[in-house]
């Protein structure tokens, strides 16, 4: 069995697990769309809604993927299936890429639904091509998957895994230029903001919504994708064939 076949078998297995768990699938796919609809009616003003939409398109795929992945991999550690896999020919990267692939596919469905609803029913005024938005949303979902994998290595219980979400999310949201523009922050905060991948994701999404793949767009996307790859590699390093 080649590594690629094992990766595909792993992705298929994870999707089969999801198929048995309708509620999780519904939450993954519907929650971002429902929040978007809620936001539309709360804001009640098309201009502000158009400004918030790119931000939510960034935050939600990331958030959901982060949570689902960290809990799924933690379960794999605690139920002994990981120990079983570590004694098998499966490579560490096979497992991580399998998760990335399966949840990446879920992210496509999630983003497709939230974008269709926003663009039609909610009248999201997009003055640029659609694909750059999709690219950013997917890179960001993959980043969420990769960071979820990494963080699950530091959690012993599902309760702890859930606690990682605010630890990872809140600084990135506060410093990502959503509430206060990044160039108006104190220098230290701006510096920290510069090393948080979400800042680049949000910037890329705003660029994509305003003008498409222009300006710093590709640099920002590269930073987000690079961070996802880095997190995957670090995640692989935390998987040990031998444990104490």
């Amino acid at each position: 069995m080649s590594s690629a076949q094992i990766t595909l078998a792993t992705a298929k297995r994870i999707l089969t697990q999801l198929r048995h768990d309708h509620r999780t699938v519904a939450l993954m796919v519907l929650v971002p769309t429902l929040v978007m609809i809620l936001l539309y009616y709360v804001i009640g003003d098309q201009g502000s809604f158009d400004a918030w939409t790119p931000v939510l398109l960034c935050v939600f795929p990331f958030l959901v993927m982060f949570l689902v992945t960290s809990i799924a991999t933690l379960r794999e550690r605690t139920t002994g299936t990981l120990e079983r896999l570590m004694a098998s020919p499966l490579g560490k990267l096979d497992l991580l890429l399998g998760y990335g692939l399966a949840f990446g596919l879920m992210a496509v469905v999630q983003v497709a639904l939230v974008l269709s609803v926003s663009l039609t029913w909610l009248g999201f005024g997009l003055g640029a091509p659609l694909w750059p938005l999709v690219v950013v949303a997917l890179c960001n979902a993959l980043l969420g998957t990769a960071l979820g994998l990494l963080c699950s290595a530091f959690a012993r219980t599902e309760f702890q895994a859930v606690q990682f979400m605010p630890v990872v999310m809140i600084p990135q949201l506060l410093l990502g230029g959503i509430l206060v523009p990044r160039d108006q922050m104190a220098p230290v905060l701006e510096w920290i903001s510069n090393v948080l991948p979400m800042s680049y994701a949000i910037e890329a999404m705003k660029l994509a919504a305003a003008a498409g793949a222009e300006g710093d767009f590709w640099r920002d996307v590269a930073v987000v994708a690079g961070s996802a790859v880095l997190a995957l590699v670090l995640g692989a390093a935390t998987l040990r064939r031998r444990t104490p």
């Binding site: 078998a9 297995r13 089969t16 002994g80 299936t81 079983r84 020919p89």
Partner: peptide, 30 residues
Amino acid sequence: RTKVGYSTQSPAVYDDLTVTENLAYFAAVL
């Protein structure tokens, strides 16, 4: 890794897969 079969003390299978699905996955890995 394909020559040693190991069964842990507490059952290590995916709770949300059927017996056949579990076995099909591990067979593919092996």
